[in-house]
Design a protein around this nucleic acid. Structure first.
Lengths: 121, 121
DNA sequence: CAGAATCCGTTAGGATACTG
DNA sequence: CAGTATCCTAACGGATTCTG
């Protein structure tokens, strides 16, 4: 009943700006798998098959494609250790990956709260 | 070169938790249009055709479907003013919509920074 | 105006098999 | 292990037309 912070709204210029920026963001990190891969890599799951095992349901084909996308955007780095036999490939986080920390936190928090809401607290 | 906050990583239980919660969130607000519709509604674009004009590129069919999804999740409310002629339909924000504020802010900020990065500052 | 209905092309992504 | 190659289906979503 009490309305303390009742007036969250955007001005028209801000609306337009936000429409664009959210679109830009979703283009890069939207979709079913991108952020999940980032989470797994940040956790330290760095090998291809390890990632596939961690991220339940993802196929090798899709994982491969997504990893390429993420690498193009600088959100992960593909490292080949040709000095080891057999050759080891690792996907590791970058400096740029860290810029996603807030996004991951915020989105994760919202997801948890939303889940609680629909499953009935 | 200086590494002050070098060790952002998740523990294994936290990884699993985050994989789930981010998935939950993306299921509801992911996709090409959902957040853009929320932004437009919050700004005060409340009529169907107004929304379609504001959100460039969205078709009536898709807008209609997305509005239903958002309403089911409590993120917007469909209000019919049957007292007015012709009958006016409005889509308005709810209390629950406000829980998305942080998500919108964080995602928007990241989108802006990312755009700057790829377009070369 | 606020959509629903229809049609249809594109794409995401799953399943499976295969390779160096 | 680290993928690639093929095939295939379901879902996304655009265009257009129609309606109360």
């Amino acid at each position: 009943m009490g309305n303390k912070e009742q007036k969250w709204a955007y001005s028209e210029p801000e609306c337009i700006k936000r429409l664009l920026s959210v679109e830009d963001a979703m283009y890069v990190i939207g979709g079913k798998w991108k952020l999940k891969i980032v989470i797994a890599v940040v956790t330290g799951h760095n090998r291809f098959n390890e990632l596939q095992r961690t991220i339940k349901g993802i196929s090798a084909r899709v994982l491969s494609n997504e990893l390429k996308d993420l690498e193009e955007n600088g959100l992960i780095q593909r490292v080949v250790h040709s000095d080891r036999m057999p050759v080891v490939v690792e996907y590791i986080k970058t400096e740029y990956t860290k810029t996603l920390k807030d996004v991951l936190d915020t989105l994760g928090d919202w997801g948890i709260k939303h889940k609680k809401k629909i499953t009935g607290k």
